[in-house]
């Protein structure tokens, strides 16, 4: 059974210069204990998608569609449920650990605050739980850390603390918005592995947002590839890497530096720049940058086709490049 079911999500920002179509027709689902990767470049709508789920969008945002968590629509959650929904059922890890901890408060009080607010446990129980959480995210000398301030920890340690804070109330779903983008390369892998093992150990759903296909490769069960606020491809991770249908997924994959290629091989960046979302879309948003585009691509928005080698492999393209295109 699905933990989170997003159907036809669309977010439009009403700006003084007219509407901006940040996200359109996005659907995906996350099951318990499963990881979903949302991949896309800047401006692809991946952050707006999760912000809409977390209720973090400004009032100028017009949200349509449904997002059901355990059968409850998040977009018309009664306010008394809302209070104990975020941070308990769904928690979030932010991109930059430099700014996601309060610089003037000790680690211990930041960790216990959420617990005490939501569950009202005693301060000694909360402290014990805080130590347990720091152990869980593999921070050494956990009990000594409670009295420390964020500036006494390194970036990777801070991100572990942020993850520990998110786990405080045993969330069923953890959303991580580019959790490693602000970290050193050597630390990135540790944090991703940590998230992966926490997901398995705690049997949570995990939504991992990233711009790096390499990050989601062996750590997710499903992938959503987004571009221009739309879903380009949605499929089980293995299928995506075995059989890329959408030219954008392929282009994104080819732009990853590959160590096994001979020296002097040039990178394969995607030409052009992301679309202007304030223009009412008429065709595939990727069409202007796509090497395979046909006339139909710029006059008609491709729907999500179910195809490819296996079921559950969806792609929004008239000229699929994988096995679906061959048949």
């Amino acid at each position: 059974m699905s933990l989170l079911d997003v159907e036809d999500l669309a977010v439009t920002f009403n700006t003084p210069d007219g509407p901006v179509y940040a996200v359109s027709n996005v659907s995906f689902s996350v099951k318990k204990g499963e990881a979903l990767g949302i991949v896309g470049e800047s401006g692809s709508g991946k952050s707006v998608t999760v912000k809409s789920l977390m209720g973090l969008l400004p009032r100028t945002a017009d949200i349509t569609g449904t997002a059901e968590f355990d059968g409850v629509n998040l977009f018309n959650l009664p306010s008394d449920r809302k209070k104990h929904f975020y941070g308990v059922d769904v928690a979030m890890v932010f991109q930059n650990p430099m700014t996601s901890l309060n610089p003037v408060k000790r680690i211990g009080s930041q960790l216990t605050e959420g617990m005490r607010y939501h569950t009202g446990i005693s301060s000694s129980d909360a402290n014990a739980r805080a130590v347990e959480l720091l152990d869980l995210v593999r921070i050494p000398d956990a009990s000594d850390r409670l009295a420390q301030y964020p500036h006494e920890l390194s970036g990777g340690m801070r991100q572990r603390v942020v993850i520990a804070m998110a786990l405080a109330n045993d969330p069923a779903l953890l959303i991580a918005d580019e959790p490693t983008t602000a970290l050193d390369v050597t630390v990135q892998r540790d944090i991703l592995d940590l998230l992966d093992s926490l997901r398995a150990d705690l049997d949570m759903g995990l939504v991992l947002i990233t711009h790096d296909l390499g990050v989601v490769h062996d750590r997710t069960d499903n992938i959503v590839v987004m571009y221009g606020g739309r879903v380009m491809e949605l499929a089980p991770t293995n299928d995506v890497f075995a059989d890329m249908e959408h030219p954008y997924t392929e282009a994104l994959y080819q732009s990853i530096p590959n160590m096994s290629l001979p020296r002097g091989t040039r990178l394969n960046p995607i030409p052009g720049s992301p679309p202007d979302l304030s223009v009412t879309p008429v065709g595939c948003p990727f069409a202007p940058r796509c090497t395979y585009a046909i006339d139909r691509c710029s006059s008609e928005i491709p729907p999500l086709f179910d195809g490819g080698a296996r079921a559950d492999h969806y792609y929004a393209c008239f000229v699929p490049q994988g096995s679906a295109g061959e048949s």
């Binding site: 973090l56 809302k82 104990h84 941070g87 700014t99 901890l101 605050e113 607010y117 939501h118 804070m165």
Partner: peptide, 20 residues
């Protein structure tokens, strides 16, 4: 800063965010 957003995600009220 994200810690304010994080507090908001945790369900903190405006008053709580401002004071704490």
């Amino acid at each position: 800063r994200d810690f304010v957003t994080a507090a908001r995600v945790l369900g903190a009220s405006h008053r709580r965010i401002i004071v704490h």
